[in-house]
Simulated assay, not measured.
Amino acid sequence: MRFKSSLVASAAALAAVVTPLLASPAAAASGTEQTVSTNWYYGRMVIGWRINPYRLDPIQITAEDRATDGYVIGIRLITNGEAGHKVWKMRTVPTGQTSASWSTYLEAGWIDNAYFEVCKIGASSGAIASCEASGVMNNPFDDSSM
């Protein structure tokens, strides 16, 4: 009887250790963050990197228009990875606001690195007048073991 209760206790202890490992969510790395700041605009992105499936989640985006100069401020993500060099959709601070924030995610296969651009856009023409790039945020996971 003593052997049976030891066996049951050992099995329960093993299940307590193995079950969370099998049921754990996808691997995630804490967010990488970059900012771009000038007298005219400010931009910030914080990216959470995930694997299984590969995705950037969450992506926290902030853009701020610091000048009343007739330009709209936009911000866009740029990634490099197995899908190649991708320039994603420009998000703009809405007319009448000085700042805007977005929360999103991205599934695009393995991504080696990401950065963003903050751009001044002509309010009437919609043409990009200038952009400034952030520093590069590298994927914190080592893909050699994937």
Rank of each mutant, 00 (worst) to 15 (best):
1 M>T: 10
1 M>Q: 12
2 R>K: 14
4 K>V: 11
5 S>R: 11
7 L>R: 05
8 V>M: 07
8 V>Q: 11
10 S>F: 14
11 A>D: 03
11 A>Q: 05
12 A>C: 15
13 A>P: 04
14 L>W: 03
15 A>T: 14
16 A>K: 09
17 V>P: 04
18 V>W: 02
18 V>R: 03
19 T>P: 10
22 L>D: 03
23 A>R: 15
23 A>H: 02
24 S>E: 14
25 P>F: 04
26 A>T: 01
26 A>C: 03
27 A>K: 12
27 A>D: 09
27 A>I: 05
28 A>T: 09
29 A>Y: 03
29 A>E: 03
30 S>M: 10
32 T>V: 01
33 E>R: 09
34 Q>I: 02
34 Q>K: 15
35 T>F: 00
36 V>R: 05
36 V>D: 00
36 V>Q: 00
37 S>R: 12
37 S>D: 11
39 N>M: 09
39 N>C: 10
40 W>G: 13
40 W>P: 02
45 M>A: 10
46 V>K: 12
46 V>Q: 08
46 V>N: 07
47 I>Y: 00
48 G>S: 06
49 W>P: 01
49 W>E: 00
50 R>G: 00
51 I>M: 07
52 N>I: 00
54 Y>K: 10
55 R>D: 00
56 L>K: 01
58 P>M: 05
59 I>E: 01
62 T>D: 01
62 T>C: 04
62 T>H: 05
63 A>I: 05
63 A>E: 02
64 E>A: 15
66 R>Q: 12
66 R>W: 06
66 R>A: 08
67 A>E: 10
68 T>W: 12
68 T>P: 09
70 G>T: 01
75 I>R: 05
81 G>T: 00
82 E>W: 04
82 E>H: 02
83 A>S: 12
83 A>L: 12
83 A>M: 13
85 H>C: 06
86 K>V: 12
86 K>E: 07
86 K>S: 12
87 V>N: 12
87 V>K: 13
87 V>M: 15
87 V>S: 10
88 W>F: 06
90 M>W: 07
91 R>G: 03
91 R>E: 13
91 R>I: 06
92 T>A: 14
93 V>H: 11
97 Q>D: 05
97 Q>I: 04
97 Q>F: 13
97 Q>P: 01
98 T>Q: 13
99 S>D: 08
99 S>L: 11
99 S>A: 15
99 S>V: 07
100 A>Y: 15
104 T>E: 13
104 T>M: 14
104 T>K: 08
105 Y>F: 13
105 Y>E: 13
105 Y>C: 08
105 Y>M: 12
107 E>I: 09
109 G>D: 08
109 G>P: 04
111 I>S: 01
113 N>S: 15
113 N>C: 14
114 A>I: 00
114 A>K: 00
115 Y>L: 14
115 Y>S: 15
115 Y>W: 10
119 C>N: 11
120 K>E: 14
120 K>R: 15
121 I>R: 06
121 I>G: 04
122 G>I: 03
123 A>C: 07
127 A>H: 10
127 A>G: 10
130 S>G: 06
131 C>I: 07
132 E>T: 12
133 A>R: 14
136 V>C: 06
138 N>F: 10
141 F>Q: 00
143 D>P: 14
143 D>L: 01
146 M>K: 09
146 M>I: 04
